[in-house]
């Protein structure tokens, strides 16, 4: 079990959304790099470093490819590195392609980590808070999907083993769908009977969940929101980073350090939590 797994769903959701959102609104290469490396570390913590490097290889190829291909579409930039025929490959244009794709890749990796810890039950809980009925609808739907896939497989096998399948493939598939439809409707009626038999539809329904607020969740929440909001506001108030016509110079001043610092702390804190958990775990194991 990962440490992030038992952070309260609301805080967990907020965390990922803040990190991903900030990554998406900035084009500052430093911030993007922070986001990129933090996302990689967290993904490595959730799966393994081996797994992370495997994925990284693919993403690096993508980023280099984007860096090479961007100059073909964008003719801006002053520093010409080399030219192939009609196309000038400028440093600015290549870096722009590189960092934009790095931003996209970071978002993808953040979402990959997100989907590891943020399973359907957390999602349902979260939206159940806002609209209680929705949570039940999602839960029922998620229960129906595997049931229908199972029906589909079962019916497809049954029809194929009748022995008439190969001759009229399209017609047979339509048959299968039509039977799946009938059986699904029938099963949905039984499910609704089961719901009624257990008292669904009466007023005053309550909402149960297995998630509890802990003190640690509140503290984490406050810290994360503070860093997140600060980074967000200062990124907005600071003017954008420009790649064209020449790269903006990154001035190392207090403001810049504070922005990068707070975002770094926000992005890397999840990894730190996991590392802390691992160390604690080893320590406890040694002690016993």
């Amino acid at each position: 079990m990962k440490r992030m797994d038992y952070v309260h769903p609301i805080i967990l959701f907020l965390y990922f959304m803040m990190v991903i959102f900030i990554t998406m609104i900035t084009n500052n290469p430093v911030l993007i790099s922070i986001s990129f490396f933090s996302s990689l570390f967290l993904y490595a913590m959730f799966t393994s470093f081996k797994n992370m490097f495997k994925k990284l290889g693919l993403f690096l190829i993508l980023m280099i490819f984007m860096a090479l291909i961007n100059p073909i579409f964008s003719r801006y930039g002053k520093t010409i590195l080399f030219s192939i025929g009609y196309y000038n490959f400028t440093l600015e244009s290549m870096l722009y392609g590189f960092f934009t794709s790095m931003m996209l890749v970071s978002v993808i990796i953040w979402f990959m980590s997100y989907s590891i810890v943020f399973k359907s039950d957390k999602f349902i809980y979260l939206f159940g808070k806002i609209i209680p009925k929705i949570s039940l609808v999602i839960s029922v739907t998620l229960n129906f999907i595997p049931r229908f896939t199972h029906y589909f497989k079962e019916i497809d096998d049954a029809q194929r083993s009748l022995g008439v399948y190969e001759k009229k493939a399209l017609r047979m598939k339509l048959r299968v769908f039509s039977i799946v439809f009938g059986m699904s409707l029938e099963s949905a009626i039984e499910t609704s009977n089961s719901m009624r038999a257990r008292g669904y539809g009466k007023s005053g329904r309550s909402n149960y969940s297995i998630f509890k607020w802990r003190k640690a969740d509140l503290i984490l929440g406050i810290i994360w929101i503070a860093f997140g909001v600060y980074s967000f506001i200062s990124i907005l108030s600071n003017s954008d980073y420009n790649y064209y016509p020449v790269l903006d110079h990154i001035t190392v001043d207090l403001k810049m350090i504070s922005i990068c610092g707070s975002f770094l702390l926000l992005a890397i804190s999840s990894t730190i939590l996991e590392i802390k958990e691992n160390i604690l775990w080893h320590y406890l194991k040694l002690k016993n």
Binding site: D121, E190, T191, Y200
Partner: peptide, 14 residues
């Protein structure tokens, strides 16, 4: 009768 159709939600606890 049918064990499948009576189940309403996607998680055992729910």
């Amino acid at each position: 009768q049918d064990p499948n159709t009576q189940i309403v939600t996607d998680k055992v606890w729910h």
